[in-house]
Design a binder for these strands. Structure first.
Length: 717
DNA sequence: GCGATCAGCT
DNA sequence: CACAGCTGATCGC
């Protein structure tokens, strides 16, 4: 595991808690001889990637619906699939394992692991999940309060992600369809309703529409197959493959339009489908996790001729608030993000950035250990190695009481009783906070917390959260012209208590314990270890980028892709320090330096057009221009600011200082490759020894510390 | 020749 | 940097 390459010791490195399991969760690509059991949290390709007909490496534990899909869709050898019941404890390789509902897609679970031994380690792996308050009363989860680590689905781990409860969105879809049906019925015409979904997930929308609009739902054969496997098919007759049986059809994801980075409808395709199926009007629904636009009138709608597309924020991932609620509830010693981190580097930039959001919600004691470790590493005269310190800390974590070790550099710890703000503390805190926070704010935070860095960071994120929450509430309070009734948001999890998560969570836990005696299954023991780190993608992007830039023209069918979009450089000359590392889109470089102001105007104009396209008329050209001036031409930041502002008309300007202003800084300053290579070459030999030992002496391998990065489901892309 | 991975597209 | 996922091409053993 690597430390911060450039400035060793300056950052409180969030080193993963070591543990001894030989499990992998959602990481089938990274299977190796070091693991003896595999867990799949749910059936989405980014989690099951690596599984297939030729899977031989070991048993795969998952829920029954997932198990059926594995066998029928992926043709994984059935003898390697172990289906486990939700909320039923099993024992695998000495560890206790429980799956609890994840409120994600059908069959999705979180896994709870408890190590054997007198001082058990406890780990929670959320898979993908959407938090609901009902989880607080799940007795299995309750046993994991204070867990050693929480592997968390951080998909929407940013305050800008807020969305309504699923009920609210469901209501919207159902009501809209009802209305369409009424109107069209009165007019004696037929209107095609299209609902976009992906292969597994968001079924609830379909079921609710069927139930409450009293109609069937048309699906293609592939979707039907999956629905059948999931138990939704059959005679009950909600779903049909007969297109003429109903006007409500399910359609593939991304057919009605591209959804990222902002929604661009594909009316051409939509019309094609409409005509194909013999209709003259069509209404589409795109249930997306993102609030693309925050309009006062409700959810975004795109119209063209007889076509209409509703963007419905319907998320099966936790919102920012929900994530924080969950962390607050579980109060783990550590949060380990599983989404949005690069290649499993747990103390990499991204992971640390994500972990920042939970400062103050995780276990205090563990936090202090983090700092202790950081400070120990920092002091040149520290006689203990990193590992020594870590070991020491961990031992203490297992004990009851936190006490500072007395014989090493304790004196360097910040002293809470002394309100003296040192440069070091500011540095430390600034490492924890987003880059746009200025020195004054850092000073202020430290002052008001009496010089406690952790508390300062915590206060900051608390404040930021409140900011967004308030913005959202004030937005939702505005009268709506549409028929949706928005209850108080921010408490979306509250409203979901009526959302009836199955009652099995109340089952007594000891009820039906199963035992799986796991002898390591290793069909092909001579598998080659492919420890190849993929060169982090910086190299081979050129092709893609070239293509996308080429398609930018004429705003016609092909629209600029994300690469193009975020590759945009701020063109202004006044760009400060952050300008140095920004990638420059060649197209942007229409660059005679002679007439600099013309350049600025020109490039801003491009940006203005883009910005206007994104906000889709919610903003005047003048506002767009002035906003872009503020962001020095950075469209991305402008979009962020725009949506922050629009949500937030009621907040006094003084409070707006905490609106993110420079996401750019987050994107630059990548690690340089030299360091990565160096560090991994340090780590690899050691790890390989471990693998050998693991595969030779399985019984004895419990005291081997498996690198946690191997344990992770990370690797998204 | 095979499986794993990637590019491209839906 | 990112709500999924299929497919055919390409890489690499």
């Amino acid at each position: 595991l690597r430390r911060h390459p450039a400035r060793p010791g300056l950052r409180a490195t969030h080193r993963p808690h070591p543990h001894n399991s030989r499990f992998l969760v959602d990481a089938f690509r990274h299977a190796g001889d070091f693991s003896v059991a595999y867990f799949l949290s749910h059936f989405h390709s980014d989690h099951y990637a690596g599984l297939g007909p030729s899977w031989r490496r070991g048993l795969v534990f998952c829920t029954a619906p997932t198990a059926r899909l594995l066998a029928s869709v992926l043709s994984v050898p059935p003898e390697l699939i172990v289906s486990i019941d939700i909320d039923v404890r099993i024992t695998v390789d000495g560890w206790s394992v429980v799956a609890v509902d994840a409120n994600h897609c059908p069959g999705a679970v979180q896994f709870l692991f408890t190590s054997p031994g007198p001082n058990p380690e406890r780990y929670v792996h959320t898979g993908d999940f959407r938090y609901t308050h009902s989880m607080r009363s799940n007795p299995n989860l309750l046993e994991f309060v204070g867990a050693d680590a929480l592997f968390l689905d951080t998909t929407y781990c940013n305050p800008k992600f807020t969305f309504p409860s699923q009920e609210e969105s469901l209501e919207y879809v159902v009501n809209t369809i009802k209305q369409v049906k009424e109107e069209s019925g009165a007019a004696g015409e037929r209107v095609l309703c299209l609902i976009a979904t992906y292969v597994v997930g968001k079924e609830r929308i379909l079921l609710e529409v069927a139930r409450r609009c009293r109609c069937m739902i048309h699906v293609d054969s592939r979707k039907m197959e999956i629905l059948t496997v999931l138990g939704f098919g059959g005679e009950k007759g909600v779903f049909t493959e007969d297109a003429s049986a109903t006007d409500v059809h399910v359609i593939g994801w991304n057919i009605l339009g591209e959804t990222w980075p902002y929604f661009r409808p594909n009316f051409v395709k939509m019309k094609e489908i409409m005509v194909e199926r013999g209709y003259t009007k069509a209404v589409g629904f795109v249930p997306t996790g993102w609030m693309y636009e925050t309009k006062k009138e409700g959810f975004a709608v795109r119209v063209k001729d007889s076509l209409k597309i509703h963007l419905v924020p319907y998320s099966e991932h936790s919102s920012y608030d929900e994530l924080r609620d969950y962390v607050k509830f579980l109060h783990p010693k550590r949060v380990i993000p599983t989404v949005g981190v690069d290649g499993g580097k747990l103390d990499g930039k991204e992971a640390i950035a994500l972990q920042k959001h939970f400062v103050g919600l995780v276990d205090e004691t563990a936090n202090k250990h983090e700092f202790l470790m950081a400070f120990n590493r920092r002091s040149a005269h520290a006689s203990l190695s990193h590992e020594d310190v870590l070991a020491k800390c961990c031992r203490e974590q297992d004990g009851e009481e936190f006490a500072l070790p007395e014989n090493n550099s304790v004196s360097e710890l910040p002293d809470n009783s002394e309100i003296k703000i040192t440069e070091g503390m500011k540095k430390e805190l600034s490492d924890f906070l987003p880059s746009w926070v200025n020195q004054d704010q850092i000073q202020g935070l430290l002052m008001s917390s009496g010089g406690d860095v952790v508390q300062s960071a915590s206060a900051f994120f608390e404040r930021e959260r409140d900011f967004f929450e308030e913005a959202n509430v004030s937005n939702n309070e505005k009268p709506k012209s549409v028929e949706i009734r928005t209850s108080d948001h921010g408490s979306s999890a509250d409203t979901s208590s009526q959302q009836e998560v199955p009652s099995f969570s109340q089952k007594p836990m000891e009820h039906s314990a199963k035992l799986v005696n796991l002898t390591p299954v290793r069909m092909n023991s001579n598998q080659t270890k492919k420890e190849r780190k993929r060169g982090s993608s910086t190299v081979n992007k050129s092709k893609k980028k070239g293509k996308s830039t080429a398609s930018t023209e004429a705003g016609g069918r092909k629209q600029p892709t994300i690469t193009n979009y975020f590759g945009r450089a701020p063109a202004a000359a006044s760009k400060s320090e952050s300008a140095n590392k920004v990638t420059v889109d060649p197209h942007q470089n229409n660059g005679e330096n002679n007439n600099q102001s013309m350049d600025i105007v020109e490039s801003h104009k491009q940006g203005v057009d883009q910005l206007l396209q994104i906000v889709d008329g919610s903003m005047s050209r003048e506002s767009a221009i002035s906003l872009l001036e503020k962001t020095k031409g950075d469209v991305n930041v402008a979009v962020d600011m725009f949506y922050s502002k629009i949500q937030n008309n009621n907040v006094p300007d003084s409070d707006k200082s905490i609106v993110p202003q420079n996401t750019q800084n987050e994107m630059i300053d990548k690690y340089d490759n030299t360091n990565m290579v160096h560090n991994s070459s340090q780590a690899t030999p050691k790890m390989q020894n471990l693998y050998v030992q693991t595969s030779v002496a399985q019984a004895d391998s419990m005291n081997i510390s498996l690198p946690v990065e191997k344990y992770l489901p990370i690797e998204h892309g």
